[in-house]
Design a protein around this nucleic acid. Structure first.
Lengths: 327, 327
DNA sequence: GTGAAAGCGCTAACAA
DNA sequence: TTGTTAGCGCTTTCAC
């Protein structure tokens, strides 16, 4: 910057001003400074700027994994908004592990992010303490809680499960099963479904759990084989924790010559891009992930930039049941 | 740090040493320093450290989009390796747009990353110039080139297309079509297929292009309708730029009562997690994305840490044709 | 509108 | 093994 200043015949400070507050510099000097920058190919050092101003324009995002479209698409819209406000994203994956999350928070806090995005509500005590001490805006997404670390944007997993149970019962299904990854978040949803369905129909609900991680079509197919061949499930509705599972069930059912939804009905979760194009089209629950990412970004921005004196702490984005052909 | 030093009865520098080079500090002082850190909850400021040492431990990754598993899974393994060496990832999406990439490089360079990951070979002149000036290790992944900015890890798209053409011809298919997103990378692959297939069979190849972006199952279904209903394609093999498309073709074909592979044969690309579980299972081209991310990370690390005096500039990870039931 | 001075919180080089 | 000194390249404050 000093070099640029010399070229433009001004001091280093004026160059700094030209970059951060161009309106405070006369048009003439501004022009000379810009020319000098152009000529030299000067790239300012954001590190030094951040150290001095105590604002890094950096956001830390911790998601379970980026190889699942659910997490990726939320982050996608979140990043878009953040970037448009001049913030960059530092991304790390927790692999569904709160201890890993704790370790990452400890490391990443040393980079002094202006804000943090966390997935879900399951954090270690130490994570909470560090975050509180750091006094940084935090947004927890996906699940909803009345007692967030700072603020929470999402929907009630339990309610979503209940809504599917109500829908299934209204459609006349009397027997039910669920297929889920064994991740706390999807299990809460499953429990909502089971409790409500049992209450309505008086029948027990069969459950299949797969390991936490990315749900696959193959696991969905295997789950249906398991349900039919070994668990004695012969007809009714199956509520899946993910559209991938549901699609797998559809394929396995067709391969076995089962009719959908007459013999087996299937409900997915997520309304992913393929859900409307399966055969038959998949009945599922839509969560507007783009909207969720968007709202999370804005909630964080409000806190960082202090644009609102009464920022909302809990934002419910809801969900929508989308009836199609599979149930 | 000075405060920690005071608590432990040493100078600020010794605290710094205890954190970065604990072996250079006596066990006794080390213990006192660690206690002081524990008590106060002190979190070092990596910004100041980076400014002073000129090493940020930060890697910039620019990928087209994270909502596509192909990009996400490569980045996943890349990040894993990088993180295990103490580097953090700053992620941004270019949306397949070289101008966007240029803008991002300009911004992100100001954070002084220790290395950069770029997707593909299509960069603006200005991007190249900035990167060269910055004198930072750069790795270009996916496509291969003999003249990388710095180094390149990937496979030949053209060769992959040719390999599929050879395979299809050997299997006895005499007519062919392709379905692709109109992105430079997949088009090179398509061109390899077309040139080779035409050469072998003497027949022209029909092509369908969809907009650049995430390929969907629905687009695959639509493509088959287009080919059959409007382009007069009645039998032969269809080479898809993505497994999503291929899966869509499978579903559409079955809905129409077409036999696979007798009436229509389908070859996908990517060997995604569902490819082995479609009905019939999908013949596709496997690219080991985890290995690719891994090799890219190691190539970058070699350059950053100067561990090898003769780092390879071009690393071909190849591809494998996986014959299954669909072709 | 512009500049001088001080300092952000660390690391590097050297000295003790 | 430990401490002193001198920056890293900016922003902030205050004066002109």
């Amino acid at each position: 910057m000093a070099a640029i200043g010399k070229l433009a015949g001004v001091s280093q400070v004026t160059v700094s001003r030209a970059l951060s507050h161009p309106e405070k510099v006369s048009p003439d000097t501004l022009k000379r400074i810009r020319e000098a920058i152009e000529v030299t190919g000067f790239v300012p050092n954001a590190l030094a700027g951040a150290l001095s101003s105590r604002r890094t324009q950096l956001i830390t995002a911790l998601i379970p994994t980026m190889t699942n479209i659910v997490y990726a698409s939320l982050l996608h819209s979140f990043s878009d908004i953040m970037r448009s406000y001049g913030y960059q994203i530092m991304l790390s994956e927790t692999g569904f592990d709160p201890d890993m999350e704790e370790q990452l928070v400890a490391t990443l806090l040393s980079r002094r992010p202006d804000g943090i995005l966390l997935w879900g509500l399951q954090h270690t005590a130490s994570t909470r303490r560090m975050l509180l001490n750091a006094d940084i805006p935090v947004v927890e997404v996906w699940d909803l809680t009345e007692t967030p670390i700072d603020c929470s944007v999402g929907f009630s997993q339990f309610d979503a499960g209940q809504a599917v149970a109500r829908f299934a019962h209204e459609r006349g299904y009397r027997r039910a099963a669920t297929v889920n990854t064994s991740d706390v978040r999807t299990l809460t949803r499953r429990d909502g479904f089971i409790s409500r369905f049992t209450e309505l129909s008086g029948m027990p609900v069969l459950s299949i759990d797969t390991p936490a991680g990315a749900p696959t079509l193959g696991q969905g197919r295997a789950a249906l084989r398991e349900l039919i061949d070994r668990r004695g499930f012969s007809d009714g509705v199956i509520f899946c924790g993910s559209d991938q599972f549901a699609h797998g069930l559809l394929i396995e059912a067709q391969t076995r010559g089962l009719r959908i939804p007459e013999d087996i009905a299937v409900v997915g979760f997520g309304d992913q891009d393929f859900a409307a194009d399966t055969e038959p089209a998949l009945t599922t629950v839509r969560v507007d992930r783009a909207d969720l990412g968007d709202r999370a970004a804005r909630a964080l921005l409000e806190r960082i930039e202090g644009t609102s004196d009464t920022p909302e702490a809990v934002i419910d984005v809801g969900f929508t049941l989308i009836p199609r052909g599979s149930a």
